[in-house]
Design a binder for these strands. Structure first.
Lengths: 334, 334
DNA sequence: TTGTATGCGTTATCAA
DNA sequence: TTGATAACGCATACAA
């Protein structure tokens, strides 16, 4: 069927062991090296990664679990992860769990059955029991974006508190005091942290945290849309609105368009995540940009490092800074 | 290390062959079956899918190649593919090629090196030479969404011509004659088909196809935005606009908002793809919905069927119908 | 530096 | 039906 190292050995007139050693980067006598290389060329030999895995206990795959395939924030990071690990000939098996904890468990089992060499996890809704199995088997885990605070492993996070703080502070510096927030779900660490930054900024400037300015949008477009509408139901409306993720920001913008609220004249707005659309919306939005490419790269390199057995600095917790992209959606009240 | 079928055999007091046969669904003597099941339970045995692959020449993986991880249309289909093949314990290796033909080749090679059991391809920009290698190795290929007309294999497509025809016809029935289109790139089969439907509808109703009503948006949000703006630069503006994919539709809506054009009073609009946002935009859009879930399911089942060696009906070409979701963005001119 | 032999966890062939 | 044994393609310990 396929050409094996046995065929190559025969063709080159050396032993199978020699070919194997050549493939694994050991030094050969110059003369043999040339013969082997020639035979490989001529036969079009390709290593069988599966057989290799059987011996070496390496599958050359990395499991990546995200919430949802259609979440552009996650897939942006995954793009970078893939690009990174591919360079070392690893491939990723990407799974989503559609927000269902049960399904998440199932996927983690699935990945373990496939002997992934490492796991990159975008979630905090995970039973620690299965994580323990990974650890027991020596499979490295990198957590991305969502933290599991009690769980000790490598992490690639974002400074969500700081990001929120600076956004809200910008409103405050522009003399806003009625600053509303559309936040994500309660059980999300990211969500909690972003709220914490909001709270801390208000506190730092001696402004009250008022429940009438706080709504929840579940990190979805529809959620953001509905929450924004809620804020403008009565006469008591905010002058500034901070929306804590991309999809809710889109939803909020749609609601604002629909209600014919002028930004920034009637409402100042800061949103989250800088994708294509942010450029295109009118007025252009001041947004917080998360370093998705960098996150993916770091996560990819980190898992590769651990897979190689290099556990220096373990556990590494990267907390990356966001950038605030200043545009036209915040008005200075004078 | 891990528990093998050898361990199970010893524990159960049978031979390793018996255990293997049990695992592969062969009948055992009742008494042995119980012993084996008990041993598997007690030892927590799991099959090693890699070793299995070595013998059976099955990797239990399916390669899926899409243009871009962040394309929600593709990932919606992938979600369904994954759900489908997962039921038979297959996993997918998802690759994107970021619109780069070179990279696409590279990914296809990469997947072949990993012995994928099947290939699902969302692209028409592919050198047929590597496809031939897949075929030579007996690896089934299913093409999704984008067709490669000369290439003979299973396909899951959408009736793009019909979809466009009906959209444009709807404008015509509402007495529009100045019907503009924002189309995708020239080298995309989907794009060509959608244009063809536009053309055919105009022709069927004896309306001229005019170049001033035709622009290209490269299937991107920014492209749709810019194209829409172009249409409204001068005094000569269309009364109806048909936008041939989701991202361009978003961009066009943003442009229209920015220009303060009233939909449907000043402009009637039909867009493509029915995702979360379509519900939320004001006014709600009449859109063409593609059956992404069904597409993924069919593609998944089709590749599984071929992998099993069932080549009945080959090549199957599925051409699915779209639905038009009628909302408030088309005005009847009286 | 090289060749030989053994084993990774499975499936498949052949007798029994 | 079952057990023993030989592969699958490769890596590696050991001897040469």
């Amino acid at each position: 069927m396929a050409v094996t190292i046995r065929d190559v050995a025969k063709r080159a007139g050396v032993s199978l062991g020699t070919v194997s050693r050549y493939l694994n980067g050991y030094k050969l006598r110059e003369e043999n090296r040339i013969k082997v290389e020639k035979a490989i060329q001529e036969l079009g030999f390709k290593q069988n990664i599966i057989a290799k895995g059987l011996k070496s206990n390496r599958s050359m795959t990395i499991g990546v679990v995200i919430d949802d395939f259609t979440n552009i924030f996650c897939t942006s990071i995954v793009t970078a992860i893939e690009r990174t690990v591919e360079r070392e000939n690893y491939s990723i098996i990407l799974c989503d769990y559609e927000g269902d904890t049960e399904k998440l468990q199932q996927k983690l089992n699935f990945l373990r059955d496939r002997f992934v060499d490492g796991l990159i996890l975008f979630s905090n809704n995970v039973h620690l029991s299965i994580m323990d199995e990974y650890i027991r088997d020596g499979i490295p885990i990198v957590i991305v974006n969502e933290d599991i605070p009690g769980f000790n492993t490598d992490k690639v996070l974002v400074d969500n508190v700081g990001a929120s703080f600076r956004a809200v502070e910008r409103f405050i510096h522009s003399n806003h005091t009625q600053i509303a927030i559309i936040n994500g779900p309660h059980d999300s660490w990211v969500s909690q942290q972003r709220f914490e930054g909001y709270r801390q900024a208000l506190e730092a400037y001696n402004l009250p945290v008022e429940s009438r300015w706080i709504k929840y949008g579940n990190f979805t477009t529809v959620g953001g849309y509905l929450a924004a509408k809620e804020f403008f139901k009565g006469a008591d409306v905010p002058t500034a609105l901070y929306v804590t993720n991309y999809y809710m920001t889109l939803g909020a913008v749609m609601a604002i368009h629909e209600l014919n609220i002028k930004v920034p004249q009637e409402l100042s707005l800061i949103g989250f995540d800088y994708f294509e659309l942010s450029d295109v919306i009118k007025p252009s939005l001041t947004v917080i940009e998360q370093p998705t490419l960098k996150m993916g790269e770091i996560a990819g390199n980190l898992i590769l490092k651990r897979i190689k057995g290099d556990y220096t600095g373990y556990p590494e917790v990267h907390k990356l800074h966001t950038r605030m992209i200043i545009r036209d959606s915040v008005r200075i009240i004078s």
